[in-house]
């Protein structure tokens, strides 16, 4: 069993995606002047959202909207509600964070990281493991509930005007942020155009995908490394939380996958989504609705601690657990 884990971890760590991320982190920590130009990085994000959404839509078009999809989406929402409540309880009872920063961190850990999801699908592809295309839509659905729960948790310790309100701008940011619009839009386009659509654009959305992901991971590594180099507010306790919380959330994801009878591939992805934490949509919402919380804590913890952990150690571990307990 131990050999199996080591082989999986080795295959994952030797993948170009993880190695380019590590290169970015190392370059940032060494204060190299290596940068990915901002507009180019934005272009990479747009490409990845389009490609992953489109491929998911095509995959769902093959099988149609199944009961599995609906139950997994409902379970995803439930996880998005449950995980922030648990994270908040851990952070406040251990006094690792004040109630407001705990609520902000909890919202991040209840929401999802699309990049971690993409890395998970890449590992499954590398291992030749099939997964359900509807998980793309589940990803988009799981992004929001934790934001609402996080703000509700924060409001419990705030009074009057200090309370986070659900303003139009916040709702706009939550439901219409660029990555969700593109991911879901491309998913719908993939669903409508189906296999003939895929044949028409596969040279664009499939062949260059891994190379573009490597470039994107290099940029992510640079950003995570810079955050890490400037992370003065992260205590050892918070770092430990950033490493333990994904394991706890992945366990909840695994239990859910077992209850739903998901395949090992789809179960791995549900575990990955549960374990991942947001660093795009939720920080934006927190900046608007909960300005009292500190981004130097919640973004750094999510991007510079949990994301690298999931990418290097978490993903093979989640697949190992799913392949042994599911299917």
């Amino acid at each position: 069993m131990f050999d199996q884990i080591l082989t999986l971890a080795g295959a994952n760590l030797a993948s170009p995606i993880v190695l380019f991320f590590a290169l970015g982190v190392a370059a940032a920590l060494a204060r190299s002047d290596l940068t990915v130009p901002e507009a180019f990085a934005k272009g990479l994000t747009i490409y990845l959202m389009l490609a992953i959404g489109f491929k998911g839509g095509v995959a769902v078009a093959k099988n149609g909207v199944t009961l599995d999809f609906l139950t997994t989406a409902a379970a995803g929402i439930l996880l998005g509600v449950l995980i922030p409540v648990i994270a908040h309880a851990i952070l406040t009872r251990t006094r690792l964070a004040d109630p407001l920063n705990a609520a902000a961190v909890a919202a991040h850990y209840g929401s999802v990281s699309i990049v971690t999801f993409v890395a998970g699908t890449s590992l499954l592809t590398l291992l030749g493991v099939a997964y359900d295309g509807y998980m793309i839509a589940v990803t988009a659905i799981m992004e929001t509930p934790a934001i609402i729960v996080g703000l509700w948790l924060a409001n419990a310790s705030l009074k009057g005007d200090e309370r986070a309100g659900f303003s139009g701008q916040l709702l706009h940011e939550v439901f219409l942020n660029g990555s969700v619009v593109l991911l879901m839009g491309a998913f719908l386009i993939g669903y409508v155009s189906g296999e003939p659509g895929m044949q028409a654009v596969s040279a664009f959305v499939e062949a260059p995908f891994k190379g573009v992901l490597c470039l994107f991971m290099l940029d992510m590594g640079l950003l995570a490394g810079r955050r890490l180099a400037a992370a003065r507010l992260l205590t050892p306790g918070l770092v430990a939380f950033g490493l333990v919380m994904p394991l706890l959330s992945a366990s909840l994801g695994l239990a859910t996958a077992m209850a739903l009878g998901l395949s090992p591939g789809t179960g791995t992805l549900l575990m990955t989504l549960a374990a991942s934490s947001s660093y795009i949509a939720v920080p934006a919402a927190m900046r608007i609705a909960l300005p009292q919380a500190n981004p130097a804590i919640y973004v750094t913890l999510s991007l510079a601690v949990t994301f690298p952990f999931n990418l290097s150690v978490g993903l093979p571990l989640y697949y190992f657990a799913a392949s042994n307990l599911l299917g």
């Binding site: 901002e38 990085a41 640079l222 950003l223 400037a230 949509a281 934006a284 608007i288 981004p295």
Partner: peptide, 14 residues
């Protein structure tokens, strides 16, 4: 007060 910031954040919000 919250440390260094730069324009290379992920997403536009920050």
């Amino acid at each position: 007060w919250s440390g260094e910031w730069s324009s290379d954040e992920i997403g536009d919000a920050g």
